[in-house]
Amino acid sequence: MKPVLVFGHGFIGAAFADLCRARGYSLAATARSADKRAALTAQGIRAVDPAGTDLSDLARAADMILVTPAPDDKGCPAFAAVGSALIDAPRKWIGYLSTTGVYGDRGGGWAFEDQAPTPLSTEGRRRVLAESQWQSLTPHHDVAVFRLPGLYGVGRSVIERLRDGTARRIHKPGQVFSRLYDTDCADALMRSAERRRAGAVYNLCDDEPAPADDVMVWAAQTFGFDTPPEILFDAPDLSPGMRRFYAENKRVSNALAKAELGWRPQFPTYREGLQVVWAALRAETV
C-alpha cells in the first residue's frame, strides 16, 4: 500500500483521508492532542505528534503529502519540519491548502490563478509566504497549491448557526463570497494527485459567488428557522474581525481546475450543499 501523510487531520484532512482509504492507501496523520491521536489510531490511521516526532522519515517515504495547517509569520510549520528532508526524497505529490485571501480585494471582480497575489490581511500574507516555500520544492516534487474559499459541510454550516442562535445576518451592498463543500474539495485534491502537475495552482470553489446574507435568508426560509435581523455593515458594534472579513470582495474562478482535473463540484451552489447538510442533521435526530 502506498503511504499518505496528512499534516492536520481536520475538516479537509479527514475528507481527503477517507478517499485515500477507499483507494487502499496507508495513512499517517499529525495530531497535537492525545485524544485526537487515540481517535485516529482507532480508525486505523498512524497518529503522530508533530511536536514530539521527527517527521522526516514519514515525509520521505510518503507517495502523497497533504498540508493543511495555518502558517505563522515564518511560514508553514510543516515545511519547517520536513522541507529540507524532501529535497532529495523520491518524487511525490504535495498538496498545500492555501486561501483565496491571497488575492485580497478585487472590488467584486474575478480572481484567477495567473493574477499576482495582493493580500490585505496578515493571514493572506502568511499564506503567500507558505505557498512560496512549498513551491520551492517544485523541481523535486509535484507540488500543487489549492486556494480555498469558505468551506462548509455537515457540522460546519449556516444551518448549525441558525439552529443554535449564533447566526448574524450582515449586509454590505454588492458584497459576494465564494464557498465550497468539504467533499468537493477532497475530490479535487485526489484528482490532482492522480493527474500530477508540478507547480500547479488551483482555485477551488463552487459555481455561484453569493452574498452571505442571501445564503442565510434562503437557509432560514427553506428549513424553517427564524430569519435573523439585518445588521448593516457600518453598524458601530460590528467587530474589527468582521470588518476585516468583509473588506475583501471578489468572485473566484474555478475554470482551471475544471479544465485540467476534469473536476465538477457535486454541489455547484450553496442550495444543493445545504440540502445535504439538512438531511444529515435531520437523520441524526431520528
Results as ranks from 00 to 15, higher is better:
residue 71 P to S: 05
residue 18 D to N: 14
residue 251 R to T: 08
residue 199 G to H: 07
residue 109 G to N: 04
residue 26 S to F: 11
residue 209 P to I: 01
residue 144 A to T: 15
residue 102 V to C: 06
residue 18 D to A: 15
residue 2 K to Q: 12
residue 135 Q to E: 14
residue 127 R to S: 07
residue 271 R to A: 14
residue 217 V to M: 08
residue 133 Q to G: 06
residue 45 I to F: 12
residue 53 T to H: 14
residue 204 L to F: 10
residue 272 E to Y: 11
residue 173 P to K: 08
residue 136 S to N: 10
residue 237 D to T: 11
residue 11 F to I: 09
residue 118 T to C: 10
residue 188 A to Q: 00
residue 267 F to Q: 05
residue 172 K to P: 02
residue 155 G to V: 08
residue 286 V to W: 00
residue 281 L to T: 03
residue 233 F to I: 11
residue 257 A to P: 02
residue 277 V to P: 05
residue 13 G to Y: 07
residue 284 E to S: 10
residue 150 G to D: 02
residue 3 P to V: 11
residue 127 R to L: 03
residue 285 T to D: 14
residue 241 G to E: 02
residue 137 L to R: 01
residue 124 G to N: 03
residue 42 A to C: 14
residue 35 D to M: 03
residue 7 F to P: 08
residue 164 D to I: 10
residue 85 A to P: 00
residue 256 L to S: 05
residue 22 A to L: 11
residue 249 N to H: 10
residue 286 V to E: 04
residue 137 L to V: 02
residue 94 I to S: 01
residue 136 S to G: 05
residue 107 G to R: 06
residue 63 D to Q: 14
residue 107 G to L: 05
residue 9 H to S: 00
residue 53 T to W: 05
residue 279 A to G: 01
residue 214 D to V: 08
residue 241 G to C: 03
residue 100 T to V: 13
residue 177 F to N: 00
residue 75 G to Q: 05
residue 89 A to D: 00
residue 36 K to A: 07
residue 165 G to K: 02
residue 181 Y to T: 06
residue 263 W to I: 06
residue 33 S to P: 12
residue 116 A to T: 06
residue 111 A to M: 03
residue 274 L to S: 02
residue 106 R to W: 07
residue 82 V to P: 00
